[in-house]
Nucleic acid binder design. Structure first.
Lengths: 342, 342
DNA sequence: AAAGATAATTAGTGCGCTCTAATCCCTGGT
DNA sequence: ACCAGGGATTAGAGCGCACTAATTATCTTT
């Protein structure tokens, strides 16, 4: 298990350890002859640079730590993809950590990364306090995805939830709908903004009288129950805008249980464009957030701090887009007339 | 950005660096007075141990590297949960890496971990060659989940796919089904074994004449197309066993498109018990693999090598269980009689 | 109260590497 | 043939910590 060191490579190649170091780092001023010599020796010995020692000495790790709120949410997987691709292109490596869904666990994950002396830290959907983030920012470049930060040391990347909600309402209004209800996401990430965006947009289209929100919690069951509540209204809404895809799926279940046709008798729009929404079986109209972009932009921003020495905070906001699928369609006069069994 | 070192803590507390080191490691023979003194100084300075230096000196990182095949697959998230919980209980930390779906990327992720000198490496669904794994095993304890390995240096944890397939067939036969077709997973992980298990079990129940497989690829579209093919048979099968949940969902789509009632006219069983299957909307009967258990067992096994000095390989096989939901039901005489539009 | 035993503390070395400054060697101009 | 100039190479000093062996403080025992 004991690994060969630079020293051994140097001896084997008949050069100094300093030269081996230069070769390993791809330094320019090394003769081709020696370079080949060293590389050959390293290869034969199965030499592998010791990052720990390397970075102890250089005080840089060229490593980014990614703290992911929830590994179960494919949402984050795509963000990580974007980060990884961009990081690799810039010769950085990434390490991923997660906090087992707790604020405490997340803080531990951050601590682990800081102990490993990562150069940068990207927090994707993190729930730690801003104080924690600022503390971390003393030791590494910190960027948060999906939340705001007021510190000068912390960059952020966010999606414009207002625009997203507006796209939904605009779409539904364009289809002729007026009684558009919302199933919100409770205290979940972005839920408040989506709800606000819903209300603002309704007013913008002169539909303030039809603003109506049932409370959900981003879960399937929450969506089901919320839809249940909405169906008892007289007249009932002709369209439902759910705060995320999962609750939209739950709502869809309830609506279909009631015997209503989707979208002719009830239009339904979700949010996030998860794999769920794309499934043929559901085919949910929803809002897409450019997740890979999140990762790419986040990485570029953090590298600006690391490599270009930027010291001011940047808050990047990207625009979401509407993805129209089969659960949204034109309003028909009779759609809310028919009595159904509840 | 420059961080306090042990030296500074020692000076501030008026003790030697060696004492600080002992306190930081929680060594026993330190007086309470000094311990408190050091802890206080460390806290005030915001001291954070440098893992790089620590492990350069001790040649241990107490860190496990987890290489995950596909971050998008929630399957792995639960494995990671199990690993993390068990690791934390044993005072190990974990780092996660992924290979961007390529064999090359995976090898890179392994290399990164080895350069960071992780003590152990857990490969979850890895697709790297066994040669790569053996190479890694020279530098760290290696364990593979979901694949076999012949090297003495590599432990494995697997689910018994034969048992899983058998549970499905037993369940369907118990419901009275005889014409049970299979949608396979092509070259995906475990696909071959599930197919073999299907065939073996069918023979066991004397149904060798009804063995019939349509080829899929673990995708929704693959399942849809495979079901399309199965529906053209005369007489058509009364039950379909899909090699994973996603293709089962695709198949379900096709079956419903054809106007068949599920489960009364066509039973459908998936595999993996993903979140998809649990959705109310789908409610798919499927095979559950104890994913958290995978992680727990894997971690325990690797810690045996690390802390107890085990040097022989252990291959652990765990049993899957059947989860009955709404897509499977009793065979009815007339179920395959009705002509449907294809 | 002295001596021996035990507990607490520290000096000092080395882990494997990077980096600065110094040295070496080769080239070309005169 | 000599020296300047510049590219190639190396010696040597840390980076922040753990660990062994040695030292000092504290406690027993008689």
């Amino acid at each position: 298990m004991t690994q060969p060191t630079m020293q051994q490579v140097a001896e084997s190649a008949g050069v100094s350890t300093a030269l081996v170091s230069l070769v390993m780092r791809g330094a320019p001023n090394v003769s081709d002859k020696r370079r080949a010599l060293v590389l050959k020796a390293a290869d034969e010995l199965g030499y592998r640079p010791n990052v720990l020692a390397r970075n102890l000495a250089s005080r840089r790790t060229r490593t980014l730590g990614i703290v992911v709120n929830d590994l179960h949410n494919p949402f984050f997987a795509e963000i990580v993809d974007g980060i990884q691709t961009t990081a690799a292109a810039n010769d950085y490596r990434i390490l991923i950590g997660t906090g087992l869904h707790s604020r405490r666990g997340e803080a531990d994950a951050i601590e682990t990364f800081l102990q490993f002396r990562v150069d940068g830290l990207i927090l994707a959907g993190a729930v730690v306090t801003e104080g924690e983030m600022e503390r971390a920012a003393k030791s590494a470049a910190v960027l948060a995805i999906g939340r705001t930060a007021s510190s000068l040391e912390i960059d952020t990347v966010n999606c414009d939830e207002f625009v997203g909600a507006h796209l939904v309402i605009e779409h539904l209004v364009g289809l002729g709908h007026r009684r558009i209800s919302h199933i919100d996401g409770g205290s979940g990430a972005g839920a408040a903004k989506r709800r606000q965006g819903y209300e603002d947009s309704m007013r913008e289209f002169g539909l303030e009288d039809h603003i109506n929100t049932a409370s959900g919690d981003f879960s399937e069951a929450g969506g089901y129950n919320a839809a249940d509540e909405l169906l008892t209204m007289h007249p009932r809404p002709t369209a439902i805008f759910a705060a995320n895809d999962l609750s939209a799926a739950g709502a869809l279940d309830r609506v279909e249980d009631a015997g209503l046709e989707v979208p002719s008798e009830m239009a339904l729009v979700g949010y996030d464009n998860t794999g769920l929404a794309a499934m043929h079986h559901l085919s949910l109209t929803t809002i897409n957030q450019p997740r890979g972009e999140f990762g790419r932009i986040a990485t570029e921003l953090i590298l600006e701090r690391l490599d270009d020495g930027r010291t001011t905070a940047v808050h990047h906001v990207v625009a979401p887009t509407l993805v129209v699928r089969r659960t949204s369609g034109p309003y028909s006069e009779t759609s809310s007339e028919r009595e159904v069994a509840l």
